[in-house]
Amino acid sequence: MSERIKKVLSFLRKNPSFTIGLIIILITLFIAIFADSIVPFDPAASSPKDRLAPPFWSSGAKPGHILGTDYIGRDLVSRVFMGIRTSVFISFLSVGTAIIIGMTVGLISGLSHPGPIDSILMRITDIQMGFPFIVLAIIILTLVEPTVTSCIVVLSLASWPAYARVLRSNVMLEKEMDYIAAAKAMGASSTRIAIKYLGRNFLPSILPVMPMDIAGAIITESLLSFMSIGIQPPNISLGNIMADGRNYISTSWWITAIPGVVVMIIVLALNLMGDTLQKYFDPKLNK
């Protein structure tokens, strides 16, 4: 056990950018989970006399409002925290959903290869990849009410085909391996074998992609609510805050800029983690 911890620690020491990314993500998760207890103000409470207060480093800042306030005097820190909660919740769950859909499709497809089911599933995957995502998202979110659940489902549509393809090719490769052939000869069913040896290749191939996909989901989520087709007020999302602030951008830039910087930092952290993982699992890049 301690051996394992040592290994992890040495990995973290050797990969400081991963460590920094991890720390930022842990902080983000902390904020997301405890958002409603750590917010300094009620994120929905307006206070007209404090409206459009700048962040603490500018003159005219209002005490207490570290990152300033928006156009009706709502505290930006509190709103950003709640926005982080929404964004993190939606993006993590959407990638989770994508992995589940992708795994199911990939597994069925890989196992039934070659065959009509495989072909059909792969064409569906192609259709999904070829459909301009933003258009699909707008149409679906017009068709159904844009709630948290529908946003999760829509976002998961963006990334499941990649998982399906990875898993499918893994299953196909495994099926042809000698030891599988041997196991088959000994009477094991191909389904069992595939599942048993899944972990061998699948996890390493999706692990580095996952942070990048979550990052993509965070950006897309904020984009959808920015275009006012995603999460609707009074739910707070980082994209909503940016959209609200856009009208004030030439006088009160912070309302739009700060949520953007927050998105950037979270995405940056995820990219740093993904980068390291990619190099770790793909020795070719690790030079």
Partner: peptide, 26 residues
């Protein structure tokens, strides 16, 4: 990688300072 992180932080600050630069105009 240490220094990569530093350079990221530096560029972030640069960006923020550009943004803050817009503020006086208001």
């Amino acid at each position: 990688r240490n220094k990569k992180v530093i350079s990221i932080v530096l560029s972030l600050l640069l960006l923020l300072s550009i943004l803050s630069g817009c503020q006086p105009s208001s």
